[in-house]
Nucleic acid binder design. Structure first.
Lengths: 341, 341
DNA sequence: TCGATTCCTCGAATCGGTTCGACTGAACGT
DNA sequence: ACGTTCAGTCGAACCGATTCGAGGAATCGA
């Protein structure tokens, strides 16, 4: 059923039906009611493709996520959920595009097929082809995360550098002198993953500032890896009394390694880091951490994108979020491991 | 840049460009090359809306997920990931629609705006309005899960009834006589959530068959709830020696409650259930469970949907999956709790 | 040499909306 | 009584692709 059918049955022209629906020109009240009755009866909805074709916009935004094959972290999931939510509130649909892996055709379709009015890009690398591709296309886009040239685009991001520095200072305040940074996977770090890179900066900076001893290791995003990573760490650095991490998926494994080593948390050993609040709260014991407010960040990304769509030539904007550390149950005063039996 | 621009620059008509791209009519090799050169130079891609309008199909499928506000379980995430993956392989785009909560406008847009060629529906209730809505619309759709009238639609599903019966029999074989079923949240069960309902059937059936004593409880989908649920359970039923569950999110909390009660797993108490393999493996200790192969299920749903789109009048098809139990480390011979100090 | 066939290309119609210019009455002011 | 204004409506053009019927040129067989 198309608009012509509605027009015929209401005894008006197609344009009148269109105006009755959009309200862009006055339509007699009685006519409007007649048209509405026909529409309700037939359950008519304007064809999205036809409308998009004429209007030149699709009322749809693209959400580019990491390849589906690799499991999303809780923080990433939080982003997706909040973007979906915010978009729904703004009556925008979401076209999902896994990018990165093999099927970049999906990304290419989203970018150049005029399928979307704008794009939200997740999991951005310091050097990211997709950003260049999007800039060339002229499509408005907003990053959750940003590249090394941060001015070249609009983004929202978590201030991993500040957050990690806060974690380190928090540990230093508790008397810890030897601490380790457990980063994300070596592949990610090598690929120039921004959060990993900035966490390193924050870590080394704060370690130097407080004259501590710091160790840095990479760790794959799962519990197994977390466990073996911490086991190696404990063996190689007996003087270690605390860990700061941005690898939430590995934390349960880290707990297990500590338990296995008969180190109680936070009595003998402290753990802190950057994680989704929900996740940190539900760990056992609950993780003292800088809480990532994924909900807010995703919603702000959508806001910025909507603005950017309505005014593509406005200067790019940035939003860097650094929430305070929520004290929970995994950090305490330093107690030298050497002093233990 | 549109097809007319390409035509002009190649010195041919628009239709020739179209045929060169689609190959639906012969085009001279030299002409084709010239057109291709122009296309490559300008980076032209046909406008998706225009194509959809003319062809009457969008090369997009809708994926209806539970409202984003509520966290998705690992199994659900597995479905989403595998659907996204399978769709990308088939060169289909995915339109994401959270449904259920407040914003059903999103669902309505997907169903009746001709935005998609078909829909995959997740988290189906025994009585589900959305199924009726989709049937009325005539849009091809496939459910992951199904309603009480299972013939009315095409679906793939996990055979929770069989799986739960297997769990119970497995426990019975190990000598357990008193076991509990920890279901999903009371709200879900009350709303007629199929998996919960069928798990109940399988549980009561197998309990009766093996002449066991069974208790059933509901439990919200998080660790906290799992913990308090099991604490209550242990207090109220001292004879209990095993739990079977379909609530994966609650399992870590259940472990904690058992640990707190000084019950070792699997020495003093057995736990088993239905869960995503990834999840079961990464728990500590790894959960003996019937593994849900979310990857396969999502991919099959996409296959079925593609078939249904190409032949909407074919009879509906069903796919019920019941993988065997993977023995891990959480079930062992029954040891009466009464016999403990 | 002439019609038939084949190969390649073109113009026009079409999909289902939106929007612009123009037309018709009725109401209005002077 | 006569322009003006304005509400309400219509027809036609347009968005960017696909596809059908048709036509021109080259090739072929008789």
């Amino acid at each position: 059923m198309n608009i012509g059918e509605i027009a015929k049955r209401s005894g008006v022209s197609r344009s009148t039906v269109s105006y009755a629906l959009s309200g862009k020109r006055p339509v007699a009240e009685e006519t409007r009611r007649r048209i509405q009755a026909v529409i309700d009866e037939l359950g008519y909805r304007p064809n999205a493709a036809a409308r998009a074709l004429k209007e030149g916009r699709t009322r749809t935004i693209g959400l580019v996520i990491p390849p589906a094959s690799q499991r999303l972290t809780d923080v990433q999931l939080g982003f997706v959920a909040s973007v979906v939510d915010a978009a729904a509130r703004a009556d925008l649909d979401i076209l999902l595009s896994p990018s990165g892996g093999e099927h970049d055709r999906s990304f290419e379709r989203v970018v150049s097929g005029s399928r979307v009015d704008g794009v939200i890009l997740m999991e951005i690398r310091l050097e990211d082809d997709r950003v260049a591709r999007l800039r060339r296309s002229g499509l408005p886009f907003v990053g959750i995360g940003h590249t090394s040239r941060s001015d070249e685009m609009t983004w929202v991001d978590i201030d991993y550098e500040t957050l990690m520095a806060r974690c380190v200072r928090h540990l230093a305040d508790l008397g810890h002198r030897h601490i380790a940074l457990v980063n994300r996977s070596a592949e990610l770090v090598a690929a120039g993953y921004g959060p990993s890179h900035r966490a390193q900066l924050g870590f080394t900076g704060a370690v130097a500032e407080r004259r501590l001893e710091g160790v840095q290791v990479c760790c794959a995003d799962d519990a197994q890896a977390g466990r073996s990573c911490v086991e190696r760490l404990l063996a190689a650095h007996p003087e270690l009394t605390a860990i700061a991490t941005i690898n939430e998926a590995a934390v349960p494994g880290m707990y297990r390694a500590l338990t296995a080593a008969r180190l109680s948390v936070p009595g003998d050993f402290s753990v802190t880091g950057v994680a989704a609040r929900h996740w940190a709260e539900n760990l056992h014991p609950p993780l003292t951490a800088a809480d990532i407010l994924a909900d807010e960040l995703g919603a702000r990304a959508v806001d910025l994108l909507i603005q950017r769509i309505s005014d593509p030539d406005a200067p790019s904007r940035h939003l860097l979020v650094a929430p305070p550390i929520s004290l929970r149950e995994t950090t305490g005063p330093a107690r030298p491991r050497a002093g233990r039996p």
